[in-house]
Nucleic acid binder design. Structure first.
Lengths: 130, 130
DNA sequence: CTGCATCCCCCGAGATACTG
DNA sequence: CAGTATCTCGGGGGATGCAG
């Protein structure tokens, strides 16, 4: 597929190229914590670190920090530090992050419509294997 | 979100529950090899094992086998063995797999439209950090 | 409260060799 | 050709302790 960009005439995309943008997106949304952070912020808007931590069951401090740092670096959310005592830190989706949220919603919808079918397929497969 | 199912009146979905269908979908499409197999089969239709192996650069035999087995178990593709000599094995998306392909295409489109912006954000972020 | 640093463990995934 | 079996290694990710 060719697409016209501001930087040049056309740019070729090949998901099978590890350096292709579409391939790199998989590295982002493939990270389950990243997706959950985006969904959480999409549902509740601005959230504090501790709120995210409580909402996303099972995530460790280390992984949550690592995840939000990555998302901030990618421009998907903003990190706002309020220099009070104790410190308060808020996270919020950027317009870019919101647009990705829309895409993630499609995934969610597919799951809600079809995962029961997947479960049936699995049972069938496991039954035959046994 | 509530949805009416065949098994009962309504079923509640919570992506923050590790056992929720929508959460489990992330485990599938989050796997880059799985996504690439689905995209490859979506582009070329029925493919042999060796064709998939050649098309998806960088995947090892082990991971490719493991991936297609998982997708077969999930009912997303079919595995057809032709008992010739040598053996021939073909993979093809099921209707369920095709419907997921549509969803993956949304991801691809988002990437093509927005990854340049992500790249800019990263450069900006890294510049500030340095 | 929000994180960074450190230690440590487990298994995901590649490489290699072998088989129907 | 299309896998399995086995070994190995690196790093993802949890637990804990410390700091601004």
């Amino acid at each position: 597929m060719d697409v016209t960009t501001a930087d040049g005439p056309t740019m070729r995309f090949d998901v099978f190229d590890a350096f292709c943008p579409s391939r790199r997106l998989l590295d982002t949304i493939g990270n389950k914590w990243a997706s959950l952070v985006i969904v959480a912020l999409g549902l509740q808007g601005r959230m504090r670190y501790s709120e995210l931590s409580a909402r996303i069951a099972g995530v460790s401090q280390k992984m949550l920090t690592q995840t939000v740092r990555g998302l901030e670096r990618d421009g998907l959310l903003t990190r706002t530090v309020t220099p009070s005592v104790p410190v308060r830190v808020d996270y919020e989706l950027t317009p870019l992050g919101l647009s990705l949220l829309d895409t993630i919603r499609h995934l969610k919808e597919w799951a809600e419509e079809h995962m029961a079918e997947v479960d049936r397929a699995r049972e069938e497969y496991d039954r035959k294997s046994a």
